[in-house]
Design a protein around this nucleic acid. Structure first.
Lengths: 223, 223
DNA sequence: TAATGTGAACGCCTTCACAGCA
DNA sequence: TGCTGTGAAGGCGTTCACATTA
C-alpha cells in the first residue's frame, strides 16, 4: 500500500472495533510510556494481541514492526477517530440520583464531553447546580437545546417520559441518545434524509437478569 | 460481557439469545393478553420474528402452529430459564448517588432480585436506610456476605476500590458481578474448580465515547 | 530478530426459506 | 390457512498463520 495518509473511509469498520477503542485509549493514557506492543495493550485491556492489531489496522499503520506503537501518538489518533478532539456537547435529562451521579462522573473524568445543560421538571430543583451546571426547567426546552448546540442527550428519566422526550429532541437535531430508561426507544428514522440517529441503551434489568441466568446455570452445571 | 465456560445443556445457547430474554419477558408482562405471535413479540421488542422464534425454540416448543405463544406460560417459562423463579440475592456496594439510584430502581421494579445488603465505608452513612435496606459499614464484610448468602454483587464504587473488593467477594463465594467502575476486573478464575465467575461491566465512558464516534461519522458522511 | 499488518480459516449469529402442524 | 420450528445459507467478527519490514 502507498505510504502516507490512509483514507478513513477505506473499509467498513466493525462496531465491535469501535467499542474497543475507548479501552485502548484508557490504557494508553494510563501508561503514558514511550511505546507499547500489541501484546502489552492486550494485557492492559483484556483483548488478544491479534485483536488489538486488527482493530488499529483498520485506521492505518500506526505501529513500527519489531518495535510497537507510539503511546502518545496512538492516543491522539484514537481521540481523533472517536471525534474526541472536538468537545462533545451533551444535555442531561433528569436530576435525580442517577442523573446527579452521571453529571458528576462526566464532569470529573471526561474533558472531551461537556454537559452543557441539565433539565428537570421539578420546580424545586430548577436553579440548583450539579457539577457546575445549572438545572433548568423544561420551559423552552427546544429553544435551549438548539441555542446550546446539543449533540447528544443523556436520558435519566422515568420510563414513561423517555420516548416523548426523545422525539422532541430528535426533532430539534439531537442525533445521539444514551438511554437509561428500560424502554426500547423507537424514533422516526431521522427527518428528511438528515443524518441517522444513534441510540445506546443501558438497561440495568437486562444485565441483572442475564447475570441471574449465568449464576444459576453454573450452579446446576457443577453437579 | 464475560465469556464464561458454557455448561453442557441440551444445546449450546448463544449469549445473544440470553440477553434478549429479558426483553421478551418485559413485553409479555406488559401485554398480559392471551396469546402473542412471534411477529407481535418482534414488534414489541424490536427484534425480527424469526429471531424471536429461534430464541424461544432453543428451550422447547412453547408455541402452537397457526396460533402463537401463550403469554402467561411463556413468561413463566422465561422466568424459569433465567432463574428468576428463585429470588436472586444481591449486595450493593457504594451508597453514593449511583448506588442509591440503583437500590431504589431494583426495589421498585424487580420482585425477583432482592438487595439484601448495602455496604459503604462512610461511617456517616452507616445506619441510614435506602429503599428499605440498611447501609452497613465494611466491618465483617465477609461474614455478612456469607451469612446472607449473597449470590451477586453490584459495584457502584470508585475505580480504585473495585478490584480489591471484587477479589474479597469472590473469595467468599460471590459468583456474579455487575460492575459500574470503569476498570477491567481481572479475578482469579474461580478457586479450586468451583463454579465460574461472571462479570458484567457497565461502562458509561465506552457508551459516551462510541456515541461520539457515531454522531461524528454521520456528520461527515452526509456531506 | 521482533513485532506489525493481513489474507485465510473458522465459528457464531442472523436471516432465509420452507416443511410441519394445529 | 396461518404461524411455528428448523435446516441451510449468508454475514460478520475473531483467531490463525505468516509474510513483511524496521
Amino acid at each position: 500500500m502507498a505510504k502516507g495518509v490512509v483514507p478513513r473511509t477505506a473499509r467498513r469498520i466493525p462496531d465491535a472495533t469501535i467499542r474497543r477503542l475507548p479501552a485502548y485509549l484508557r490504557a494508553l493514557e494510563a501508561e503514558a510510556g514511550q511505546r507499547l506492543t500489541s501484546a502489552a495493550l492486550g494485557v492492559l485491556t483484556g483483548f488478544s494481541s491479534e485483536q488489538v492489531r486488527k482493530d488499529l489496522a483498520y485506521f492505518g499503520a500506526f505501529g513500527t514492526r519489531g518495535v510497537g506503537y507510539p503511546a502518545q501518538d496512538l492516543a491522539s489518533e484514537i481521540r481523533h477517530i472517536l471525534g474526541l478532539d472536538r468537545e462533545l456537547k451533551a444535555a442531561l435529562f433528569g436530576a435525580g440520583h442517577l442523573g446527579t451521579a452521571l453529571a458528576r462522573y462526566v464532569a470529573a473524568t471526561h474533558r472531551d464531553v461537556r454537559i452543557v445543560a441539565i433539565f428537570d421538571p421539578d420546580p424545586e430543583k430548577a436553579g440548583s447546580e450539579i457539577a457546575g451546571t445549572a438545572v433548568t426547567s423544561l420551559v423552552d426546552l427546544e429553544g435551549e437545546v438548539e441555542r446550546l448546540g446539543v449533540a447528544v442527550a443523556i436520558l435519566a428519566v422515568p420510563e414513561a417520559a423517555a420516548e416523548p422526550l426523545a422525539r422532541r429532541l430528535a426533532a430539534v437535531g439531537v442525533r445521539g441518545f444514551l438511554n437509561f430508561a428500560p424502554v426500547m426507544l423507537s424514533l422516526p428514522p431521522a427527518l428528511d434524509g438528515g443524518p441517522p440517529i444513534t441510540i445506546h441503551n443501558i438497561d440495568l434489568s437486562i444485565e441483572l437478569q442475564t447475570l441471574a441466568y449465568f449464576v444459576q446455570v453454573h450452579e446446576t452445571a457443577s453437579v
